Simulated assay, not measured.
Amino acid sequence: MTTTYAALLRGINVGGAKKVPMAELRTLLEGLGLTGVRTHLQSGNAVFGADRGDEESLAAELSAAIEQRFGFGVGVIVRDHRYLRAVREACPFPAAELEARQLHVTYFSEAVDPARFAPVEPAEFRPEEFRLGDRALYLYAPDGLGRSRLAGALARPRLLKGLLATTRNWNTVVKLEELTGV
């Protein structure tokens, strides 16, 4: 049975570093025997079908193939449609009332203990807010991610040690859930 997944690549095509053309990424994924391959935007989002493996093994396979093809390592998180739908439905903020640039989801490679983020004092960053979900962090940044002080605080290396984390805006969260639902 084929399952549809989204692959979230971390840190590609940003500021001229780690260039991965989407057409080449599609060809690479198809060469691995993945089906129905599509990409979304230039920021490292791919959707594909697979009848083997699980999220972790597929992420490792994609990461190794990207490194072999492009010559640099890229963190990859793979999630299936059911998970992506659950993330969308569990959003603790009123997504329908917000602009997409105000709401972001950071996907984590594994479950996160809330104590990890205890050093971040929410009151210092108001009106910005964050909430933890299932292997995800929801960030409300009314002035956008680029101007968010809270986003910087949450991305401190000591808070993310040992985790792979990659962030998407709400439009991309919604689109990936839709694309994997086919």
Rank of each mutant, 00 (worst) to 15 (best):
A65R: 04
G16W: 03
R38G: 06
A6E: 06
E129H: 10
V174K: 07
S63N: 05
S63H: 03
E56Q: 09
T27V: 11
V87T: 10
A60W: 02
R26P: 07
F72H: 12
A151Q: 07
Y83Q: 01
A50W: 00
T27Y: 06
E24R: 15
G49R: 00
L98N: 02
G162Q: 13
P157N: 12
L164Q: 15
L103I: 02
R88W: 00
S43G: 14
T172R: 07
G49F: 00
A118L: 08
L132W: 02
L28V: 12
R158W: 13
A95I: 03
G33Y: 02
S63Y: 03
L164F: 09
L41W: 05
G73Q: 14
G75T: 07
A96P: 02
V14F: 12
V47E: 03
G36Q: 03
K19F: 06
V182K: 05
L176I: 03
A46V: 04
H81G: 07
G44R: 12
R26S: 13
G33Q: 05
A151P: 04
T2A: 09
E89G: 00
M1H: 13
Q102T: 02
E128K: 03
M22I: 06
C91L: 05
A155H: 13
I12G: 11
G49K: 00
V112K: 13
D51H: 05
G44T: 06
G73E: 15
T4L: 15
R69C: 10
G44L: 12
E56N: 05
L179I: 00
R158K: 14
L150S: 04
G162A: 10
F48P: 01
F108A: 14
D113T: 08
R85S: 01
A6H: 08
E177Q: 05
M1R: 13
I12Q: 12
R149P: 07
S43K: 09
G15Q: 09
A65Y: 05
D54K: 01
P122Q: 12
E178L: 01
A90V: 05
G11T: 08
V87S: 00
E61Q: 15
L84K: 00
F108M: 13
A17K: 14
K18Q: 09
G33P: 04
A136I: 01
A59S: 00
P127D: 06
A95S: 10
P122A: 13
L98K: 05
V112F: 06
